[in-house]
Amino acid sequence: MRVRTRVTAAVAGLGALVALSGCGKADMSKQASPYANAAGAKTVTLSVQSWVGAQADVAVAEYLLKEELGYRVDKVQIDEIPAWDALSQGRVDAIMEDWGHPDQEQRYIKDKKTIVPGGGIGVTGHIGWYVPTYFAKKHPDVTDWKNLNKYAKDFRTPESGGKGQLMDGSPSYVTNDKALVENLDLDYKVVFAGSEAAQITQIEQFAKQQKPFLTYWYKPQWLFKKVPMTEVKLPAYKEGCDADPAKIKCAYPHTPLQKFLNADFAKNGGKAAEFLKRFKWSEADQNEVSLMIADQKMSPEDAAKKWIDANEAKWRGWVPK
């Protein structure tokens, strides 16, 4: 008899569970963050990438969404590629600055149709290899990749061992450096600092000691204002030369940075979606905000406010009436 009560209890419990969870399909790809909309306001969730430029984009967008449109903004830090997945699932409503991920675009925009492009952010990005200008001035020929091997010994560090160090930032960033070093036959070792910030710290330290270094870096970036750097010329980029990641032998392209929106959000997101689609500024504007955040250590919110207060003409048009 006890067995029967137990079985009954188990069935009842299972039934309750099923009933609670909605009696059927549960699409986990359409679940928002549990923290979203907590205060009952309309909420937009933005993905914050780890580099400062993207933080500047988000800070300004956040401020305007809050102050001008009355939204609540949640920010989620996710790396670039997982952010696509999150965007597709609706855990994130928008990515403000994407540096080009063809695979993901194919999968989510063309195949699954869960993400739509949101237009350009107005900034063109370019990745390259850089040496500090103080070093380039002393050794002008270092700016050609063909001469890099000559200077390998100058770029040696404990982490790179006997080879020269090519410093990369976060593993998640778009990078072909390992292949490039191999294919261009360079006597270098790619060392990942782990994150952009770590990389910046190291660059600043090198700069302080006026030491030579070779680093993966990109434009637009505020750090150029603090540590002037000169790009090393790699073999010129041609359309399609980066098709096979293993055989790349050319420089990085110049990429107009893109915004992407979750498809549902783009359709039903109202003014917020409209605003994010219209958001477009310039490299100089972005750098201004970035510098305030990263160098003057202002909070992103304060930095955004400062820029917004000074540049109403620029953003007024983004805000839908």
């Binding site: 569970l17 909605g22 549960a26 986990m28 790809s29 359409k30 679940q31 963050s33 923290y35």
Partner: peptide
């Protein structure tokens, strides 16, 4: 990734787990 929104394993099993977690975290948070 391709089947997360269609395969029964996800919609009828993992989906519910995920749902329950989101709901309970949200409940506590609220």
């Amino acid at each position: 990734i391709d089947n997360r929104d269609s395969h029964w394993l996800f919609t009828y099993f993992f989906g519910h787990i995920s749902n329950a977690i989101v709901l309970s975290v949200r409940g506590v948070y609220l």
